[in-house]
Structures are given as structure tokens and as C-alpha cells.
Computed example of a mutant assay.
Amino acid sequence: MSDCVFCSIVAEDSPAYRLYEDEHSLAFLDIEPATRGHALVVPKAHYETVTDMPNALAGAVFQTVHRVAGALESVYRLDGFNVLQANGVAAGQEVFHAHVHVIPRYRDDTVDLGWSGKPADETIQQEVAATVRDELASRS
């Protein structure tokens, strides 16, 4: 897509600190990192969200996430890491090319992922579980 910054990075028309690439995906450093080593993994083909991608491509992208996360663990003394993916404006997606954040975590970082959970309602949990199971079964 001509106006997509991530497509431009994939095409090497825009600069990026590239970390890894294969036939299906590209990993590069985020230009506004939450922490040292914060990386993005994108499919090379343009898909707006992760659920728009074919299953095989989603799998390939997450294999790259696994690879990059492992490399970050090996070279830095991480206390953990987050893998974050946002679909849509309500979820905080700002660049509408599917991408996955790999965010190294350190005990003294100031990253706040910003939600606080509340105890679940058992009736709602049962309803949601049944509805989603039925949908998943219909896709088999």
C-alpha cells in the first residue's frame, strides 16, 4: 500500500533498524520504543489486522515474534517481555498494517499496559465460553 509506513519500510523506501526478515515477515526496532530493544514484527504483505491475515501467514509472523523475543532474552538481561498486538482504533492500533510489538521488560522500567481487571461474572463467563466455542467449531 503506497501510504502505509510499514509497507514503505518493507520495500526499503523508508529507513528502519532491521533486525530480522524472512520470506513472510520483517522485524525492526520501534521508533518510539517503550523500552530498550522494543521491536515490531510485521507481515511483508499488507493486511490491516492480524485477523485479516491467512492462518499460515499469522503463524509465520508469530514464529518471527518467537525468534526475536528469544534473541532479546539472549543479549539483554530481561526480567520479562510483553507480546502485544492491537486490532482497531478501540484497541489502540495507530498504524493500520498488522504488527506485533515485542517489548522487553526490566524491573525498573515505567511501562504501564493500562488495565485493571475485575472479578469475572460466572454467568457471563459461561455464556462467552459457549458462544466462542460454537463459533470456533463452526470454522473447523
Rank of each mutant, 00 (worst) to 15 (best):
D52S: 14
A130M: 03
G37M: 07
N87T: 04
A39P: 11
P15C: 06
T35E: 14
C7G: 05
A86G: 01
Y17F: 15
G70C: 10
E94D: 09
L40C: 10
M53P: 05
R36M: 13
V75L: 10
D112I: 13
Y20D: 01
V61T: 14
A11M: 04
D79N: 08
S8A: 09
E32P: 02
N82F: 04
Q85P: 03
P15M: 08
L78F: 04
S8Y: 00
A91N: 05
F62G: 08
V41S: 10
P15E: 08
S138I: 09
A130I: 02
T123H: 10
F6L: 04
A90W: 01
V5L: 09
V83C: 03
V10S: 00
A69Q: 03
A56G: 12
T123C: 03
V42M: 08
H66C: 11
A98Q: 01
I103S: 00
V111S: 02
I31C: 13
A11G: 04
H99C: 05
E127V: 06
G80C: 07
D22W: 12
S138F: 05
A98W: 00
L113P: 00
E94S: 10
A90K: 06
L84D: 01
D52V: 11
P104W: 00
V95L: 05
T49N: 13
A90D: 09
L72P: 03
R77N: 15
D108M: 05
L40W: 02
V111N: 02
D121T: 07
L84F: 01
R133T: 11
E12A: 15
V83T: 06
M1E: 09
S14W: 08
M53W: 08
E21P: 06
E127K: 13
A130Q: 08
P104A: 05
D109P: 06
G88M: 01
L72C: 07
D22A: 12
H101Q: 06
P54A: 15
S74L: 07
R107H: 14
L113I: 13
L40A: 12
N82S: 12
R77Q: 13
S14R: 11
F6G: 00
A129K: 14
G80E: 07
E48F: 11
E21H: 09
E122A: 15
G88H: 03
R133Y: 01
F81V: 04
A120M: 06
I103V: 14
Y76C: 03
A129F: 07
R105W: 04
L40H: 04
Q85W: 03
A27D: 01
V75W: 07
V95R: 00
V10P: 00
T123M: 05
D13H: 10
E122F: 02
A39C: 15
Q126Y: 02
P43M: 12
S14Q: 15
G92Y: 01
D109G: 07
R36E: 15
A60T: 13
C4D: 06
A45S: 15
S138N: 10
E48C: 13
H24I: 09
P119Q: 13
T51K: 09
A60Q: 12
D79P: 00
E127N: 12
P15R: 06
D22S: 12
V42I: 14
V50I: 15
P15Q: 08
R107L: 05
H101Y: 04
P43T: 14
A60F: 14
A58Y: 15
E48W: 08
F28R: 02
A16F: 06
S8F: 00
A120G: 10
V75D: 11
E48P: 06
A45D: 11
